[in-house]
Design a protein around this nucleic acid. Structure first.
Length: 593
RNA sequence: GGGGUCGUAGUUCAGUUGGUUAGAAUGCCGGCCUGUCACGCCGGAGGUCGCGAGUUCGAGUCUCGUCGGCCCCGCCA
């Protein structure tokens, strides 16, 4: 660079700068060499500017420019010129001007890029991750990281204005029961003992409330050693918060205010508050899931009572065994082919449905279906009325255990929406899901486990149920769902030890175990713990939705592959025998270095 | 742990019933070209068909295994 100092970014110059001497720095995106005049599109994080090398005005510089290649790093000194008549490029924000170069310094050369950076071809993701520093130069990827930054800034300033303190919590902490599999870190100075990386800073933020911090937040990395998905990474980022002296309404207000600020400042979109609320029970009933995509209808209709005595044996026996029959009216879909229906049947089978019954409502109102003969006219009428079935509609039915019916129809509903193109990535439907069950029964472990986490408060009126019928108790937990994706959740916490003891007992954690694993929390609850509650938002998922991407990998600078590896650094890697020995670890796997 | 799908030039892909020397576009290299903006024109190089076995006279193509990418189920309080 020598004595050159950059004067402008590559998105800044306009007609108003005509005649100005400028110094620009950036990467060669494209070179157009006409033998005579040479054009270079110079790129930086901010944009593109065309720089021009003219053999008549500066032969030496022009000769040097002849050798430039993609992704070389340049500094140029030159003069801003308005482009000749008719030569404006309306696709570029700097398309009205160009910079006539007087001095060129090659700051660095580059290997030929492993994949094109200037086109929108889908490149193998493994390759993109191996050369992530090249991938991130692509404007689309740069944009995602810029939006992410803006989002963090927006949320930070919102929370700061609401008196939150940003406080860091340990990354090396202790493993606690419940929840996901922990990432473990061996302790060198304590042989045989391990730290766990936090699945969330849950206990620490509660302890900060007990410490009187009143309002805490943190943009914090969390770790869960579970299998990956398009929206799940082993390390991910949460906007984590906790507040003292609050109830659910306070939490909704904070959550809504923060989302409002987020959408406004990152996308310039004004979203409506308050957000609609739906109870867990209603969400399951109407959508089959606790994270409903509310951008479209296709809701579930319960026909159990209507068909319990019908002539169709499959339906009748399912109902008799305590199961249910539910239906979706796919309006106007009677045109689906037999093949379509077979594919959809196979699709719901993935989610446990042993069959998918269907009825096409013909133009004359008649039912075309393999099962229509099993129903009386009255039954058909009753079903049609409940489903508001009209000519041209296609009705789907699933009969099974409630869990299976809901899982299958929830997925069918989403698949239909995809086929019918009912959703747009530009719509953002936010909804609170409330009144979750506190506990659910785990058949494998033969005990109840926490739906949210063990520190979630039950509804006051349900506390007695903890002993009589724990599965029926509802909690003071809430989730925020955006377009069918859970982007956040939280709860009002237990702040008194006797209630915490009760919940531990309902979870099958006896006093000894509770004392062993949570004594610090229990003692703290006895030390003047204020009522408190909180929530956390998944930053990666939020950014994925805001950036219109289908994978959180596209909004994370250096993500992991589905096998939890990093093609660039080749992590996880082998370690030396010496390192293991220092940690008092003896490998029992083969070929460990 | 399981299911699906993909793997061919640097990249994105094509490759017929198994049959001679595996193609295209783009990129790359060289030459020409003074107003392009995905510049244009001419020429050239570039392949362990992911890897390993098997079937066969013969395998990019068929079979089995294996490795890897992606999607999903389980899992993820």
């Amino acid at each position: 660079m020598g004595d050159l100092k950059r004067t402008h970014y590559l998105n800044q110059l306009t007609k108003a700068d005509e005649g100005r001497e400028v110094i620009l720095m950036g990467w060669v995106l494209r070179r157009r060499d006409h033998g005579g005049v040479i054009f270079i599109d110079l790129r930086d994080r901010y944009g593109l500017t065309q720089v021009v090398f003219n053999p008549e005005t500066n032969p030496e510089v022009h000769a040097k420019a002849h050798g430039l290649r993609s992704e070389w790093v340049l500094a140029v000194r030159g003069t801003v010129a308005v482009r000749p008549e008719g030569m404006t490029n309306t696709k570029m924000s700097t398309g009205e001007i160009e910079v006539m170069v007087d001095e060129l310094r090659i700051l660095n050369q580059s290997r030929t890029p492993p994949f094109p950076l200037d086109e929108e071809v889908e490149v193998n993701e493994n390759l993109r991750l191996k050369y992530r520093y090249m991938d991130l130069r692509r404007p689309e990827m740069t944009k995602n990281l810029v939006i992410r930054h803006k989002a963090c800034q927006a949320m930070r300033s919102f929370l700061h204005a609401k008196d939150f303190l940003e406080i860091e919590t340990p990354v090396l902490t202790r493993s606690t029961p419940e929840g996901a599999r922990d990432y473990l870190v061996p302790s060198r100075v304590n042989p045989g003992r391990f730290y766990a990386l936090p699945q969330s800073p849950q206990l620490f933020k509660q302890l900060l409330m007990i410490a009187g911090m009143d309002r805490y937040y943190q943009i914090v990395r969390c770790f869960r050693d579970e299998d990956l998905r398009a929206d799940r990474q082993p390390e991910f980022t949460q906007i984590d918060m906790e507040l003292s002296f609050v109830n659910e309404e306070d939490m909704y207000e904070i959550g809504e205010g923060m989302m409002k600020a987020l959408f406004s400042e990152t996308m310039g979109r004004e979203i409506k508050t308050p957000f609609p609320r739906i109870t867990y029970a209603e969400a399951i009933n109407r959508y089959g899931t606790d994270r409903p995509d509310t951008r479209f209808g296709l809701e579930l209709t319960d026909l159990t009572a209507t068909v319990e005595n019908c002539g169709f044996k499959v339906f009748r026996t399912v109902v008799k065994k305590g199961g249910m029959v539910k239906s979706i009216n796919a309006r106007g879909c009677a045109t689906f082919s037999r093949k379509d229906l077979d594919v959809l049947t196979e699709y719901v089978a993935d989610f446990g449905a042993r069959g998918l019954a269907w009825v096409k409502v013909k133009e004359d109102g008649e039912w075309q279906s393999p099962i229509t003969k099993f129903f009386t006219d009255e039954e058909r009428k009753a079903m049609a009325a409940k489903l508001d079935a009209n000519p041209g509609d296609l009705l789907f039915f699933v009969a099974d255990r409630p869990q299976v019916v809901h899982a299958a129809l929830a997925e069918l509903r989403l698949e239909l929406a995809r086929r019918l193109d009912l959703t747009s990535k530009d719509d953002f439907d936010l909804v609170w899901v409330t009144d979750f069950p506190l506990l659910e029964y785990d058949h494998e472990q033969k005990r109840h486990t926490a739906v949210h986490h063990p520190f979630t408060a039950p509804r006051e009126e349900d506390i007695d149920l903890l002993e009589s019928d724990p599965g029926q108790a509802l909690s003071r937990a809430y989730d925020l769902v955006l377009n069918g994706i859970e982007i956040g959740g939280g709860s009002i916490r237990i702040h008194q030890k006797p209630l915490q003891d009760k919940v531990f007992r309902a979870l099958g954690i006896d006093d000894d175990e509770a004392g062993d694993k949570f004594s610090f929390l229990l003692e703290a609850l006895e030390s003047g713990a204020p009522p408190h509650g909180g929530m956390a938002f998944g930053l990666d998922r939020l950014m994925m939705l805001l950036s219109g991407r289908d994978s959180i990998r596209d909004v994370i600078a250096f993500p992991k592959t589905q096998k939890a590896s990093c093609p660039m650094t080749e992590a996880p890697s082998k370690v030396s025998r010496r390192q293991l020995t220092e940690l008092s670890l003896k490998p029992d796997w083969k070929e460990q270095g």
